[in-house]
Amino acid sequence: MADALFWIGGGLIVAGAMLSVLGAAGVLRFPDVYTRIHAASLTDTGGATLMLLGMGLLGPFGLITLKLLLVWAFIMLTSPAAANALANAAFGSGHRPRIGNFQIMGEDKATDAAPESAGKERA
């Protein structure tokens, strides 16, 4: 039983680490701020969930589990909020997505006429 828990927990930790690496690759390779935020925030919360769950299965049950739960709750609360605020600030300061159609409420044209993406055609 304990052996099975060890392997499941270790497997979850490795899976979380792989998700983190994938997210980092996305942050490195994606074309603009918004896609990068998407990659980072999703894999941060997902990777953290998997890894902390794995650690909870590995460790002794008790105060440590409670602390792991606290760390998880904290990351689940702050990471999406920070990503949201970041995307909001980036959009407000004039960055426009490079991929896909979008329309800003109150503006008539749906373009990417932004200082940041000038000279780059919409994909």
Partner: peptide, 18 residues
């Protein structure tokens, strides 16, 4: 002065909890 789409409701709620 806010730009279009410039609001921080999520941040305010999170900060209030934190």
């Amino acid at each position: 002065a806010g730009a279009p789409g410039d609001h921080h409701v999520v941040l305010r709620v999170t900060a209030k909890m934190l």
